[in-house]
Design a protein around this nucleic acid. Structure first.
Lengths: 191, 191
DNA sequence: GACAAGGTAGACAAACTTGTCTACCTACTT
DNA sequence: AAGTAGGTAGACAAGTTTGTCTACCTTGTC
C-alpha cells in the first residue's frame, strides 16, 4: 500500500472539513463525503463510527489548524504589543476577504448543529478561550489595565466582525473592530 | 367558523416560529409543524406553498416583532441620548438571560440555511440595517462625531454579545459590550 | 499458507423529508 | 341549491439520510 491509501482517514477528514465548511454541516450527507473523498463507506465508518463523530473530529482538526494559523500570523506582525493586538484584525480582514471565506467554522457549527451537548459545541468554547488567552497575554504586554475584561471585549469584536463578514459579506468589519479596539486600548492604558 | 379557525395561517406562523427557534430550522420538518399547530397538511400548503416560503414568512414575522420590541424597550429607558445608547445592552442582557433565549434568530437563520440567496438572508441584512439606523439616530443625538462608523461598531458589539450568549450561554456579553460602548461614546464626543 | 488490517463497490433497509393528492366537512354568499 | 373558501385526516410517493452488511481485494506478518 502506498502512503495515499494508508491515509484514508486523513483524506476523509480533509474532504469532510471542506464540504462541511462550504455547504454547511447539515447540508452535506455522508454519501457526499464518500463520493468526494473516494473512500468506501465501510472505510468511512471504520474510522468514524457515526456522522456525529466525524463532525467532532472535523471540528477538532479545524480548531487545531485555525489556532496554529492565527498564532503564527499574529506573531509575524507588529513591532509593539499594541501593534500586535491591532494586527490581529489585519490577519482576520485578509481571511474575511478570501474567496473561500464562508464564516467562522466554529460559530457556524454551533448554530448549525443547534445542540449544546454536542462535542463540537465544546470545541468552539475551547477555541474562544484559547483566543482569549492569546489576547490576555498581548494586552498585559501592552499595559492594558484589565486584560481579562479587555479579552472579553475582544471576543465580542472578533465575533461581531466575523458575523458582519458572513452576513453582509464584507470584510470591513475587521477595520471597524480594529478602530474600536484601538480606542479601547488607549482608554485602558496609562491611567 | 370561529376566529380560531380563520387564523390557521397565524397559528402555523407562530408555531413554526417557535419550533424553528427552539430546535433549529433544519431540525424541524413540516410534519412536526403540522402536528404542533393542529392544522392539516393541506392547510399548511395552502398558505405556504413550500417550506422555504414558510421559513421566509417566519423570519419576516419575527423581524417585525423583534424590531417593534427593541424600539419600544429602548425608548422606555434612559434619560439622555448616551443613557439610551447604553440601555440597549440592558435590554439585550435581559433577553439573553431569559430561559427561552437560544440565540439571535436572524443570525441563526443565516447560518443554518447557509444559502446567501435565500430570502431569509436578506431579512437578516435588513434587520441589521434597521438596528443601525436606530443607533445612528441615537448617536447623533448624543453628539457622537461619526455616527455611521459608530453604528457599525455597534453592530459588531451586538453581534458579538449575542454570540457570547449563545455559545457560552452567558448574558454577560451585554455588560462587556456596554462597557466598550461607553468608552467608544466618550472617545467620540467633544473633540 | 493463514490471518489480520485496511481497503474496494455498492446493495439493503428503516426512517425521515417534502410535497401531491383523495375524500370529506362547514360556513358563507349569491 | 350551487358554488366558493377554508378547513379536516391522512394516504401516497419519490427522494434523501444514516447506518449495516455482503463479497471481494491487497499487503504485510508470522
Amino acid at each position: 500500500m502506498t502512503t495515499e491509501i494508508s491515509s484514508a482517514r486523513q483524506q476523509i477528514l480533509e474532504t469532510a472539513s471542506d464540504l462541511f465548511y462550504q455547504k454547511g454541516i447539515q447540508h452535506v450527507g455522508i454519501n457526499e463525503v464518500i463520493a468526494a473523498s473516494g473512500v468506501a463507506k465501510r472505510t468511512l465508518y471504520r474510522w468514524f463510527p457515526s456522522k456525529d463523530l466525524l463532525i467532532e473530529a472535523v471540528m477538532q482538526y479545524r480548531a487545531a489548524q485555525w489556532s496554529s494559523w492565527f498564532e503564527t500570523a499574529v506573531s509575524e506582525r507588529g513591532n509593539t504589543p499594541k501593534e500586535r493586538l491591532l494586527s490581529t484584525f489585519d490577519v482576520l480582514r485578509d481571511w474575511y476577504a478570501s474567496p473561500s471565506f464562508r464564516g467562522c467554522p466554529f460559530i457556524n457549527a454551533v448554530l448549525e448543529i443547534a445542540d449544546a451537548s454536542h462535542k463540537a459545541h465544546q470545541v468552539s468554547i475551547d477555541l474562544r478561550e484559547s483566543i482569549r488567552q492569546i489576547i490576555i497575554r498581548l494586552a498585559a504586554e501592552a499595559g492594558v489595565k484589565n486584560p481579562d475584561l479587555f479579552s472579553r471585549q475582544y471576543l465580542l469584536l472578533i465575533g461581531g466582525a466575523s458575523l458582519m463578514a458572513t452576513i453582509e459579506q464584507s470584510p470591513d468589519g475587521a477595520t471597524f473592530a480594529q478602530t474600536a479596539l484601538s480606542v479601547l486600548i488607549d482608554a485602558n492604558i496609562g491611567d
